[in-house]
């Protein structure tokens, strides 16, 4: 009897529904702080979807960097600029109608695409037999970042086997990118105004 309902499906619906509802909440709320709040819950639920799909490291990463880091930063920005005239910025009705029309059409197209490929919408029969320690553990990901692919031990292409299928290069590029971005962000938000402060407590 329980076979008719599996935990994966149940949790998927749960997480997908919360994620979608709160994503819609981001769209439809006009208060910027509420938008941020909805976004937190939406991204948190999508982290749940990641866990469900077996990508536990990415899910935790999503929670840590996206939700814990980026969004706190965002809320911080919201608070820094939170004045009453900016808190609620309404979009006029004409824009709403237009954008909802376009958005609805886009969603239809995407959904059509998502469900039209038979390889994608056929259920995977052997799911219960899958054991995926590799993708669940962070170590293979780390190994892939250093150029070693644990999941492709049987790789026959000699070029790929020699570590070329790893992610060492993109990893380095992203690291440099991050560094540059941090410097750039610090430059952009650099102080424009200096307050001469007399006698700091003295």
């Amino acid at each position: 009897m329980l076979a008719a309902i599996d935990l994966h499906g149940f949790l998927f619906v749960l997480f997908a529904l919360t994620a979608c509802v709160f994503a819609a909440g981001v769209l439809f709320s006009s208060n910027i702080v509420r938008m941020a709040f909805n976004l937190v819950l939406s991204l948190g639920s999508s982290a749940g979807l990641f866990f469900l799909a077996g990508a536990e490291f990415v899910g935790a990463m999503q929670l840590m960097i996206y939700v814990g880091g980026t969004l706190v930063l965002l809320v911080f920005g919201v608070m820094l600029t939170a004045q009453h005239r900016f808190l609620e910025m309404r979009t006029n009705a004409g824009e709403w109608v237009l954008s909802l029309l376009v958005g609805g059409a886009l969603l239809m197209v995407l959904l059509q695409a998502a469900f039209s490929v038979s390889q994608w919408n056929t259920p995977y029969a052997q799911r219960d037999q899958v054991e995926i320690d590799e993708s669940k553990s962070a170590t293979p990901i780390a190994a892939a970042l250093t150029g070693v692919r644990v999941d492709k031990l049987e790789e026959t292409n000699p070029r790929l086997r020699a570590g070329k299928s790893g992610y060492l290069m993109p990893f380095v590029i992203v690291s440099m990118h991050l560094l540059v971005v941090l410097v750039g962000a610090a430059y952009l938000a650099r102080p424009r105004m200096a307050v001469r402060q007399m006698r700091r407590g003295g």
Binding site: F37, V40, L63, M64, V67, G68, G69, V72
Partner: peptide, 8 residues
């Protein structure tokens, strides 16, 4: 990660 969320 999850402890960091408490701040929200």
């Amino acid at each position: 990660a999850i402890l960091g969320l408490e701040v929200f």
